[in-house]
Structure formats: C-alpha cells, structure tokens
C-alpha cells in the first residue's frame, strides 16, 4: 500500500472594507467580488473590522458573494465588524449564523 500525503494551500483573497456598507456602496462591492470570482479567486475573506454601518443592501452584496463563491466551489467568510451599528443587521436577519465569522483576519485564514 502506498500512502501519499500532501499539503494543499488554499489561495484566499482578502478584501478590507472601511466606512459604511450601505446601498450606496453595495454596487461597487458586488462588482469587486464578481471580478474576483470571474478570475477564479473563489475563496474570499472580507474584513469588516472597521466598517461602521451595514444595511440590508450591504448584507445582500455579501450574501450574493457567498452564494456565488460556494456555487463555484469556494467560500466567502467574514471578519466580524466591531461597531454595533454594523453587527445589528447580521443579528436581525440571523445571518450571523449563516456566515462563517472570525474576530480577526489571522484566525479566519488559519481556520480556512
């Protein structure tokens, strides 16, 4: 019997957001995520640490990215925002239980 072992390093694209992720910023985020996925970058880590506010349109851009990456065989995971005004929309829609979230980028990448 032959036993072969190997290490597979997954390539993860990191996207860092700051400021407000609202209806105004959702469209450019969708464009960026779509470009990554088209280019084969199907594992995406989005760092929301410094995001101040998220609304349902911003959430929708993240959900679409998650669905598109998973459909392509990858995933989209989040570093949780620190501001309560950004966390709120995830809690009210229960998406804090749908997205895989970490408290910092290093632990998110380490557990990928």
């Amino acid at each position: 019997m032959d036993i072969l072992t190997g290490n597979h390093q997954i390539s993860v694209t990191t996207v860092i957001l700051t400021g407000r992720l609202d209806a105004l910023e959702a469209a450019p985020l969708r464009t960026v995520l779509n470009e990554h996925i088209i280019n084969g970058q199907i594992n995406i880590a989005i760092d929301l640490t410094a995001v101040e506010f998220v609304d349902s349109a911003g959430l929708a851009a993240l959900v679409k990215g998650m669905k598109d990456t998973r459909r392509a065989g990858g995933d989209l995971k989040l570093v949780a925002p620190r501001a309560q005004d950004a966390v709120r929309v995830f809690e009210l829609t229960r998406f804090d239980r749908v997205f895989e979230m970490a408290t910092d980028i290093d632990s998110l990448l380490a557990d990928w």
């Binding site: 349902s56 959430l59 929708a60 959900v63 679409k64 998650m66 669905k67 929309v89 009210l92 829609t93 229960r94 998406f95 749908v98």
Partner: peptide, 20 residues
C-alpha cells in the same frame, strides 16, 4: 418573506423594520 433555511439576496428590509 425570507426563508431562514434558504439565504436569499434581497427582501430583508421589511423584516428588519418590523423587528425594530
């Protein structure tokens, strides 16, 4: 109405308003 078991892209605005 959003289905908790089937994440959808839109439709969460009224859900949020009704909770607050």
């Amino acid at each position: 109405a959003p289905d908790a078991n089937q994440p959808q892209v839109r439709g969460y605005g009224l859900m949020i308003i009704e909770q607050v």
